[in-house]
Write a protein that binds this DNA or RNA. Structure first.
Lengths: 235, 235
DNA sequence: GTCTATATATTGATAGAC
DNA sequence: GTCTATCAATATATAGAC
């Protein structure tokens, strides 16, 4: 007979310390109730808000608890360690953050693929600026928590996509250029609108710094990248 | 008779607290000796190192003192407050940081001007990565210490240069595009190599992530921007 | 000017009542 | 599960000897 198994157990949502579920060693970790999961989400949401601005060391549990609307000991009941909150946010981050690049498809045509990749990245900067800043903070510090993922998973993904880009170049569908730096420039230009948002808004001023700025950015970037990549006949 | 005035008094190098020189109210502030200035520079250098990585709140005087090779009370003798060190670094930052943009000259031709602007910015990312990261940290936090400078001085500068770019477009020397987002994209792509250095190196790997990466980046960016901006005959 | 010692505040984390 | 009280560690900053 098959041992009883909880349906849809979300092992990533257990109360953990140092990456391991709390409780007696050897004891079967219990999945969280709906309420517990919701509380954790409230905390993670608040922590994202704070970590994104002040980084790990610059953020305090007090701040996070205040934003989450609960007391500090109460927060620590759900996440016994500050580091644990950060670890959870960061480990979920890379996956979502790289989703747009994963979608770039070798079977498609280069311009539509690149164009929609840029659009998706720009939408992420618009809709998830805190995630973008959390990532930027981590990078500025030398990516101490995700360096292995960067060196392995991210590198593999970019190598693969660079290969696709090179393939398109070989077919003459795309101007020959450095595929790695091409990807860097898409990352940089799109994330800029989240990470340097204050500066963008201040420079554009009240008239052009409103919500429309993302549409303007999309139009500009499309022009920059597509014209810049159009293959030309040698003359 | 003219009151005695110290030659070359560097008022920005006095020992200050909350932006005002220390000492009895009304007393004439004394300029620093050479040794004092050198000690301050050692501290500022160390602080740049630390603040660039951890941000203001995430950095400690202990860390800075250790990097500077002196005791904490000794450091506090030269800068009575942690905030004062940061204030000095930040206020000097914007000036140096915008120097390359200031050099963009309306009397020049667009492509050489833009090309050398990109080169200068990329050289700054290569040679002054800590300054770049300090700036990025400040931006991520919403630029609390330099928001007025951003809204006034920086905005004015960018407005002026955007005007120059528009002029070139009117003359048909430059593809018509959004001059503000053009400037943003130059900032973003060049500073990326300082702020996201870990990621760039990890993705490029040992073979291509060495010092040559800046030359590769320069070549790529030149191609991206210049081809992308070449005016075309309507067809 | 530099050091040791220390005051004072903040912070991460725990104990234990309810 | 949540709270008050509190501990221990760390952090900014000062006092005062030399």
């Amino acid at each position: 007979m098959v041992p009883t198994k909880v349906k849809n157990a979300d092992t990533s949502a257990l109360i953990e310390r140092d990456g391991k579920p709390l409780g007696k060693a050897g004891a079967k970790p219990r999945p969280l109730t709906r309420i517990q999961r919701e509380k954790q989400n409230v905390i993670l949401e608040a922590a994202l808000e704070v970590f994104a601005v002040h980084g790990f060391r610059g953020s305090t549990i007090d701040q996070i608890a205040e934003v989450a609307g609960m007391s500090k000991p109460n927060l620590l009941y759900y996440f016994p360690r500050k580091e644990e909150i950060h670890r959870r946010l960061i480990s979920e981050l890379l996956v979502t953050w790289l989703a747009p690049l994963r979608e770039m498809d070798a079977k498609g045509d280069p311009f539509p693929e690149i164009r929609s990749y840029i659009r998706r990245k720009l939408e992420m900067a618009r809709d998830y600026p805190r995630e973008s800043r959390l990532f930027a903070n981590e990078m500025l510090q030398g990516a101490p928590h995700i360096i292995e993922m960067i060196e392995i998973d991210l590198k593999n993904l970019v190598d693969e996509k660079a290969g696709i880009l090179l393939g398109w170049m070989d077919e003459g569908k795309l101007a020959r250029t450095d595929p790695y730096h091409l990807i860097f420039s898409i990352w940089a230009t799109t994330q800029h609108y989240a990470d340097f948002d204050v500066q963008v808004r201040a420079v554009l001023g009240p008239s052009r710094g409103g919500e429309g700025r993302f549409e303007d950015a999309a139009r500009y970037l499309e022009q920059l990248f597509l014209y810049g990549l159009t293959p030309r006949a040698k003359s």
